[in-house]
Amino acid sequence: MTEPVHHVIIGSGSAGFGAARTLRENDADCRITMFTMDAIPFYQRYELPQIFRGRSDWRDLLAVPPSFYEDHRIDLRRRCRVADVDGANRKISLSHQETVAYDRLLVCAGGRGYLPENLTGYGELIHGFGSFEAAMQTYRDLPEGGRVVMIGGDMVGIDLALTLLDTGYGVTLITNSQTFWPHELGAEERAPLLDVLRARGVTVLEDARAVRVEARNGGAPARCVTLDDGAQVQGDVVMAFCGLASSVEFMLRAAVDIERGLLVNPQLRTTNETIWAAGDVCQIWHDSEKAYKFYHGWKNVRVMGELAARNMQGANEVFDVDVEESIGIGEDGEIVSTFWTRGN
C-alpha cells in the first residue's frame, strides 16, 4: 500500500482554505495538512470591521464550522509557526522543533501589516488589526465614541474607518503613499476619494508624516501622535494601515526565488518543483509586462488558492486575473472598491 500524497499548506486564509477545499474535492485519499499561526479556523479578515458592529463572537465570523475540517479530513494545525522549509528534502520545521515531511507544499502565508520604518520603535503603542484577537483588543481599548488615529489608510483601514464612523467613533486619517493600497492612484484620483471621507466625517491630514507615538498615562485620550511639523494629534487608539508585507522569512532556505514575495510562474509554481504559492505572499510572472506582480483582493486570492491546488494535483492552469482592481465613487456617493467584499 502506498502512502497517500501529503499536501501541506502554510496559511489558513482565503487562499489556503480555498486550496484545501479544492484538494479534497479532487482527491478523496490525499493527506492535507494546514499550518496557521491563528488560533481560530479560517475566517474572512475583511470582515473584521464587523466587530465594531457588534459581531464580537469569533464563531460568527467563521467561513465554515470547525467540523468542516474533520469532515473533510483536513488536519488544521493552529498556533504553529513554520520556522524553516527545506525545499531539497521536502520538509518543514515548526518552531516547536517538529519536522513534517510533505510531497507538495503550498505557501499561502499572506502578509503582515506594514509599519513605516520610522514608526517601528512605537509598535507596542500601535493597535493591530491583523487578526481577530488584535481587532478585538482594539475594540475593547477604544472607548465609546473614541477616536482612532489612522496612519496610512489602506483599503482595509478605509473599510474600518467607514465602519467606525457608522458606529459613532471618530477617525483622524494621516495619509501617506499607502493610502488606498492596493489601489495605485495618482493625486487627482485620490482627491475626490479623500473628499468622500471628509464628507463622511473623517479628519484627513495630508502632507504630514507621523514621527512619534506616545502613551498618555492615565490621561484621556490615551495616545498622542506627533507629526513631522511638530503638530500633535490625539486619539484613543493609533492604528497603522499601510498595506501588506509578504510573510516569506521562513522560505529563505527553501531554494526558491524571492523578491518581495515568492516568485511564481503563471501556474503559481515557485522555482522549486514541489512548492507552489498563492495569495498575498506571491508575485506572479506577468508575461506581457515582463514583471512579477502582486494581486490582492479576496476574490483574486481565493482563485489563486484553488488554481494552485489543481496544479498541485497535475493540472496546468494559468492564473488569469479574476477581478481587475478598481476603485471609484458610486452613484450613492460612496467609495466602491473591488477589494472589498461588500456588494459582492
Binding site: 481560530i40 475540517y69 488536519d75 498556533r79 522543533q97 517538529e98 519536522t99
Partner: peptide, 27 residues
Amino acid sequence: YDDRSIAPIREGAHITAHIRPAQIPYG
C-alpha cells in the same frame, strides 16, 4: 500546552497536531 520543545520531535508528536478545530489552543 508548551509551545516549545527542548529537542526535535517527530511528526505528530506535538499536541497541536491533535487539538480539534473547535478546541482553543493556548500555547
